[in-house]
Design a protein around this nucleic acid. Structure first.
Lengths: 124, 124
DNA sequence: CGGCATCCTAGCCGATACTG
DNA sequence: CAGTATCGGCTAGGATGCCG
């Protein structure tokens, strides 16, 4: 059952790329990292993440909730309180993200160097 | 020098997110994975990746070249041949991608389950 | 063969205003 | 406090055509 050719079309390769696109969007990673410090309420997350709009936070949290990465708990008080927390799955993702982060830190200077050199080469 | 608060604004957190967005785009990962099997010419890559347009392959390869992930070698023949190969940096990225892929394989069913359940819940 | 230029569309995301 | 609704800009990416 060996694969000599890579099947990008009908198998999970696409799914990986898709998920990477999801967590690679502007806000998902910041939200996950923030929640990695512990459960937080909506506006607490909002305050923790500089520059995020209310709507984008809502959307990002919905998407993460849909994927089972975060749990949403409503405390029926007045005014209502909603608490968000990472699920085990979300925590697992956070670890992978941290690993990616470490890789980035390691190679960031190298990449920047290549970019500068390339831009220099092409901007004749 | 401890960080009690996460700085999403001015530090590398943003850069990580940015790079994740780059490799999370539609074609970067497929290209890297394809080249992981060895150097290939332009149209060979094109054939290996179902559905990619010529322009998107060009753009993806340029971006990867700019970041120092792939090397571009022109063989001055008629017709001209251009060979692309992963650099050590690109190979390193491919390994990280493979790790991400494994994580996905592991959790894909779980995520799909959550999605289905969520959609069911909300599509009342 | 490899690659750039152009046009066009769909979707992401921000800003703003409104609701329970 | 925690959302939803609406508008509009920006850009990723597809289709097509031309060039060395």
């Amino acid at each position: 059952m060996q694969m000599t050719k890579i099947d990008h079309g009908s198998r999970n390769c696409m799914r990986v790329s898709e998920l990477l696109g999801r967590i690679g969007d502007r806000w998902t990673l910041p939200v996950v990292v923030t929640l990695n410090g512990g459960p937080l309420r909506f506006n607490a997350i909002r305050r923790a993440i500089t520059g995020i709009s209310q709507q984008m936070l809502t959307r990002t949290l919905r998407a993460l909730e849909r994927d089972g990465m975060v749990s949403r708990t409503v405390h029926p008080s007045v005014p209502p309180q909603v608490e968000y927390a990472l699920t085990p799955l979300g925590l697992s993702l956070a670890e992978e993200a941290a690993r990616l982060g470490r890789w980035m830190q390691t190679h960031l200077a190298e990449i920047d160097g290549h970019r500068a050199a390339f831009d220099n080469r092409t901007a004749n």
